[in-house]
């Protein structure tokens, strides 16, 4: 089976506007990331603040123009398309944002927010639009009678339902979920996670699910990619990754999650320090400054990929760096 979305060596640098006469600094937000996502699958993308996961997502959707690399959607490189032709792809790939308060225009009714994508993509018949909007509202569990209300009249969970409906009304094949439940309370979070799973089954959606919450990613993903400072350090099927994390960063991440079970005794591996700045990322393996198992080679060469099983890839010098793929 060929992948729905394939990301190859994607790069994004931001130029910091330096003062006159000074050398310009670059933020190395995404530095050479590759992975693929198949139809109907959820790929979880975990990482800490500033690791570049949101930038990566925006580059895939061309909300930001990447500095290098390619994104293939059903085999077609969408980064090379002129923007006019790319619009046809917009309806096939959508995004749900983190903040359900900031991502809805406060001056539009929910109906007009949901109608908007249909208008943009040329649905001229108001009746057809109305029917679609109402059907979609039903699908995400919004009372169609509330469609004439404004976003501020809704709770956080309901607003996130509106955001999901807006993303799905064009019947996309691929949806980026950028921390869609981080702003929600535990009790509401479960509702939205369940909804996303249901919709995935019903509409055969592929998700790129970005989050910093490992429990959430464990719950919803088929495969998980772990990101650190602009690079992917490990990628594997969920069960395997959680059972057998290989990269020291992945291990530390898992060990850091508080477990809601007071009898659980952890083997602590608390990481020292904070993630370094992506303006001057460390040489070699980017994790070496905080890694408890670092070796001399780590600060010199970036690690090569190692695959213990066909679907599990880790970038770490501990495993010899024999290139398998």
């Amino acid at each position: 089976m060929s992948p729905l979305v394939e990301v190859r060596n994607l790069k994004k640098h931001f130029v910091l506007s330096g003062e006159w006469g000074k050398e310009r600094a670059f933020v190395d937000a995404v530095s050479g990331v590759s992975f693929s996502i198949f139809q109907g699958e959820t790929l979880g993308l975990v990482g800490e603040t500033g690791c570049g996961k949101s930038t990566l997502a925006r580059c895939i959707l061309r909300l930001l123009e990447p500095t290098g690399g390619s994104v293939l959607f059903r085999g077609k490189d969408i980064l090379k398309l002129p923007l006019k032709e790319f619009k046809a792809y917009r309806r096939r790939m959508q995004i749900v944002f983190q903040d359900p308060f900031a991502s809805l225009n406060p001056r539009k009714t929910v109906f007009s927010i949901l109608e908007e994508p249909l208008i943009i993509h040329g649905e001229r018949n108001p009746r057809a639009r109305r029917e679609k909007v109402e059907a979609m509202a039903e699908q995400v569990g919004l009372d169609p009678r509330l469609l004439r209300n404004y976003p501020h009249e809704f709770s956080g969970g309901q607003r996130q339902r509106v955001c999901i409906a807006r993303a799905l009304i064009l019947e996309p094949e691929f949806v980026v979920c950028d921390e869609p439940v981080s702003a929600l309370d535990v009790s509401v979070r479960a509702q939205i996670l369940n909804l996303l799973s249901e919709l995935q089954e019903r509409m055969h959606l592929a998700y790129l699910f970005i989050t910093h919450d490992l429990a959430v990613v464990h719950h919803i993903s088929h495969r998980v990619a772990v990101m650190y400072l602009g690079t992917i350090v490990e990628i594997a099927p969920t069960e395997e990754l959680f059972a057998n994390p290989l990269h020291p960063y992945t291990q530390a991440l898992f060990e850091s999650i508080p477990v809601p079970n007071p009898t659980y005794k952890r083997k602590r591996m608390v990481l020292e320090g904070d993630p370094p700045s992506p303006i001057h990322p460390p040489s070699g393996c980017r994790f070496h400054t905080r890694c408890p198992k670092r070796m001399e080679v780590c600060s010199v060469h970036p690690p090569e990929a190692f695959s213990p099983t066909p679907e599990h890839v880790v970038f770490c010098h501990l495993y010899g760096g024999t290139k398998v793929i």
Binding site: L63, Q94, I95, F97, S103, L104, N105, E116, A167
Partner: peptide
């Protein structure tokens, strides 16, 4: 910079539409 403008861009809205309508 609001996310709803970004959402609008993700939907493929033109600059004119974003400026005038949003």
């Amino acid at each position: 910079e609001m996310e709803y403008i970004e959402a609008e861009r993700a939907l493929g809205a033109s600059h004119a539409r974003i400026l005038l309508y949003h």
